[in-house]
Amino acid sequence: MSTKTSGGERGHPPGGRTRLSVRRSARLVERHLMIHRHTPGVLVAEIFEPLLYLLSIGVGIGRLVGDVPGVADSAAGYSAFVAPALLATAAMNGAMNETTFNLLRKLRVDRVYDSMLTTPMTVWDIALGEVCWAVLRGTLAATGFLAVIAVLGLVQSPWALLVVPCAALVGFAFAAVGLAVTTFLRGWQDFQYIQLAMLPMFLFATTFYPLDVYPRPAQAAVACLPLYQSIQLTREIALGRVGPPLLVAVVYLVLMGLAGLVVARGRLARVLLS
């Protein structure tokens, strides 16, 4: 090529193999946005699933359940209890789909990162970019779901808007850990083990009933589940009970996300830069 384009990163600082650059991470998000212009349907699906659960369990079983202990307004009753939990789950699933299922395809089948690494992009940039993208996806799914349940009259407090940043935090924690776990997977068949961990967590983390149905030792164990912390955070906020105890969940999720990110970076470097 005879013509030259100016610009680029000629004056790049040294140590670039490991350096993290938010600007470079954003370019990965740019790629994903370019692709998702072609497939907007995914978001619809991610809102549809929690809505189904809300209709069948929330409404269907709500009639069988009657009053829920701890929910003041019995008009909305059981559905208002279940909806925030489903919202936290939507944020978790939206984010984790990206860093587990889709990421394994990009890592092992499409080998998208191989070509990225021939550019100034670093492994850190890829890890952070993927997590940012996943957070975006999880937050969008949760926000869409919030809009739908607001229309259904299940949002009771203006505090509910705080649920959006909560969803982002939930997305961050699960996306980062999901990414770390995915780097250990040998193939698609290993996904059933992720499923084996996620499904019980979804069922047991007080999604459908309060913590006090468990005997005391089980309560302590359930309280350690990351989804329990996520549900607790969104449910308390959605029901208008904002207070310092929620900081526990916030700190828990931040630490979980950071730990996931560090492990993910190390593992990605091993897998990609052999």
Partner: peptide
């Protein structure tokens, strides 16, 4: 096992209470 424990057991507690 999970579904029966969580929904049958946990959620069942709420339903049967009613």
């Amino acid at each position: 096992l999970m579904f029966l424990l969580a929904l049958g057991g946990g959620l069942g507690t709420l339903v049967d209470r009613n």
